[in-house]
């Protein structure tokens, strides 16, 4: 189950503002379908690089190009950090 990906503020106590929900619809943390890439536990820098490649079209895709264009670099960094922290 995907929790909302949040922008890390370092505050800790207050609820962090969620930026996106929906990635886990396809990229589940545990037990997702093998046909869909597993993101949990990959390095944040690798995820950021791939999202950038989707955004620019350098990496061809079905839906990821359309999705990557919807997020700012900060949001992509937050999503990548969240997945990198999941195991």
């Amino acid at each position: 189950m995907c929790v909302l990906v949040v922008v890390p503020t370092g505050a800790g106590a207050a609820p962090l503002p969620p930026v996106v929900a929906g990635c886990c619809g396809c990229h589940a943390v545990h037990g997702g379908d093998r046909a869909l890439p597993l993101l949990a536990g990959r390095s944040a820098s690798q995820i950021v690089a791939e999202m950038k490649a989707f955004r620019t079209g350098a990496r061809p895709a079905t839906v990821m190009g359309r999705i990557a264009k919807g997020f700012t670099p900060d949001e992509i960094a937050a999503i990548a950090a969240w997945y990198a922290g999941q195991r």
Partner: peptide, 25 residues
């Protein structure tokens, strides 16, 4: 469903829920 759950948890705790970007495919 997930966003609503996080908002309910915040409201019950007396906090202000934050907005989110949502995705549909």
């Amino acid at each position: 469903g997930e966003l609503c759950a996080s908002a309910i948890v915040a409201l019950i705790a007396g906090k202000t829920p934050a907005g989110a970007k949502l995705l549909s495919n």
